[in-house]
Computed example of a mutant assay.
Amino acid sequence: MINFIIRGFGRYAPEKVLTNTDLEKIVDTSDEWITTRTGIKERHVVADDQAASDMAFESAKMALADAGMDASELTHIVCGTFTPDSMIPSCACIVQEKLGISGQACVDVQAACSGFLYALQTARGYLMLEPDAKILVVTSEVISRRVNWEDRTTCVLFGDASGAVILTSGTEEESPRVLDSMLAADGKLGNLLTVHGGGSAYTYKLGEPVGEEFFVQMAGRDVFKHAVRSMSSICNDLLERNGLTTTDVDVLLPHQANYRIIDAVGRKLEIPEEKVFCNIHKYGNTSAASVPLALSEAVESGFIKDGDLVLLTTFGGGFTWGATLVQF
């Protein structure tokens, strides 16, 4: 049996901070409106010369340092993103080049906000086949370039960031150890949250203007409903499969999409508020980077302690969702 050990954690958020007050000058909104509906106070935005791979590189370096590893030891790079630098080459390949290494298997995983759990599960699959593998799982999103800054219902929600972990095999006594994971999707609901533009079904000809379909479009109320239902349901299924209940969970760390969603999932699972980690007020929704960014902060701050059983859960466009158990 393979034991999946997280050797290091990393995160990165751009230097530029965009507050709700700043947004009041850009779009018809207010700090009060954003805060009461989302819990978000500020978000980070990339500089003009930054791309997804630049942030991924920074969080990867932090994760490698935390693991006490050199980049040359890596065997695989799995990158979760829906905002890569380019369609070709992949973000994972660009990160590899920036790390100054070559020869590793590199692949991008696109599951929107569920990208980290999908990428982590992909890495676990590689380790099942190659137990000696040392894998960088990194997520990075530049959503500020994929939101319509005239649409107040979406532009206030998102921020840019990256998160990373190093995953290897190990012994049962080592921790943090990924115990189990479940993933799911329902493509019938895909049109409730989209970024169509640039895809093969929504192409542009040279010189044509970019339309609204190039940016995030979302049916907010429907997304809220399905997010709460799907995350709470898959968490219960995962716990039941492992002979556990929500009373065994020490920390719930959900995707940081909206405070109301975070709160609703915690309530539905009957997990006390003091056990639910939340940093959405500082970063907004950073999509695939959300969970590893929060995980790195929760570990560093001591919110997650040795011996804690941590339940991760996420929901994203597709629709995609998932849950993962990590024993610290």
Rank of each mutant, 00 (worst) to 15 (best):
I2T: 10
R11S: 15
Y12H: 08
L23W: 10
D28H: 08
S30I: 14
D31E: 14
E32D: 14
H44D: 12
V45Q: 11
V46G: 03
A52T: 12
F57T: 14
S59T: 06
S59C: 09
S72G: 04
E73G: 06
C79Q: 05
T83H: 12
P84D: 04
P89Q: 12
S90W: 07
I94G: 05
G100T: 01
I101A: 14
C106E: 00
Y126I: 10
L136C: 04
T139F: 06
T139H: 07
E141L: 09
N148H: 10
N148I: 07
E150C: 12
C155K: 05
S162A: 14
V165L: 04
S169E: 01
E173C: 06
E173P: 01
P176Y: 01
L179G: 02
S181G: 11
D186M: 02
N191Y: 11
L192M: 13
A201C: 01
Y204H: 10
L206E: 03
V210K: 05
F214T: 07
V216P: 03
V216K: 07
V216C: 06
G220I: 13
R221C: 08
D222I: 00
D222V: 05
K225Y: 09
A227V: 02
A227M: 07
R229W: 01
R229I: 04
R229A: 07
S230W: 06
S233I: 01
D237V: 00
T246S: 15
P254D: 05
Y259A: 03
I262N: 05
D263N: 09
R267Y: 06
E270N: 11
I271L: 14
E273L: 06
E273N: 09
Y283D: 03
S290D: 07
V291R: 09
L295D: 08
S296T: 14
V299W: 05
S301E: 11
K305Q: 13
D306E: 15
T313G: 09
W321Q: 05
T324V: 04
L325V: 00
L325M: 04
F328W: 15
